[in-house]
Simulated assay, not measured.
Amino acid sequence: MSTARSDLRARDAVVRFEVRDGHTAVVTLNRPEARNAVNGAVAAALEAIVDATEGDPSIRAVVLASSHPEVFCAGADLKEISAGRRASLRTERGGFAGLVFAKRDKPWIVAVDGKALAGGCELVLACDMVVASPRASFGLPEVLRGLIAAAGGLYRLPRALPANIALEMIATALPIDAERAHRFGLVNRLVEPARVLDEALQLASQIAANAPVAVRESLRVARASRDLDETALRQRSIAGMAIVAASEDYLEGPRAFIEKRPPRWSGR
């Protein structure tokens, strides 16, 4: 993976990858000339990054950001679609952009300082938490082009927003701004543009300070809460607790508390 990481760190990579403070991966969409539209290279890179971060026990959170000063992501690259390469914009395991349906245990935080439209909005909805600036906006304009938001947007947006607001956005193709999205709970933290990435990194560091196994199992149950009934969620919670209780960190937490020191999590 070291060679792949070097390729992704290159400034001209379509998706840049770096690790901050040892535990946070920063993933930056980097096709500013195309408003970060997703092509085959972006999809392949994001899937590779999902695999890399999931397989690296030192990574505890991932921040998804943009290199474009005004656009987070404009969605699918229409030039690729018109050239007959629509299938390349998705991967078998990850779906659109190699990410929206990818199986992930690590928390993903998206930093949005600009427009997140169509597939770009679906990337946002695929993440766990959102940090945005007031100049960010979110929308699913697919019906303007005779399309539908088939990469999760049609059912994730009504889960993230009041249903009638989401239905209006889907049917009219009109976006909402970040301040309104924050009031409705789609955006976790609303900060000035210069602070968006730093705020996302701070949120990631707050997550990384906690026991990795406990975070992973807690999120696994919480993410399923929209799809499973209480009986199934109770069983999943019991299973998660068993995994946590068998970890080294289960003993480290109380020990650190008694010894009045910061815990040294192993993630095992």
Rank of each mutant, 00 (worst) to 15 (best):
G120K: 07
E54A: 14
D249Q: 10
L251R: 13
C73A: 09
I59K: 02
A87I: 01
G240M: 09
R264P: 05
V62S: 06
L197G: 08
A44K: 04
R189H: 11
E18L: 05
V244F: 14
R135V: 13
S225Q: 14
A163Y: 14
R145W: 06
A4K: 13
A242V: 14
R264C: 09
P212R: 03
A41N: 01
D21C: 12
D249Y: 02
F257D: 08
D51N: 08
E217C: 00
V213T: 15
P141I: 03
F138M: 04
L186S: 04
V71G: 04
K79A: 07
H68V: 13
P32Q: 01
F257E: 09
S66P: 09
A163W: 09
A126E: 04
L144R: 13
D113S: 15
L174K: 14
N210E: 15
F72A: 00
G40E: 05
G22N: 14
V19K: 14
E18A: 06
I243C: 14
R156H: 07
A232N: 11
L233D: 00
G114N: 05
K79N: 13
G146Q: 11
A44E: 05
R180C: 08
D77Y: 06
W108K: 14
S82P: 06
A25Y: 03
E252H: 11
P107R: 03
V50F: 00
C73T: 01
L197N: 03
A194R: 11
N30Q: 06
A211D: 15
S266L: 14
P162T: 10
V124G: 01
L99H: 07
F257T: 11
A163K: 13
I258C: 06
T172K: 02
A209R: 13
Q206K: 12
I148V: 11
V213P: 02
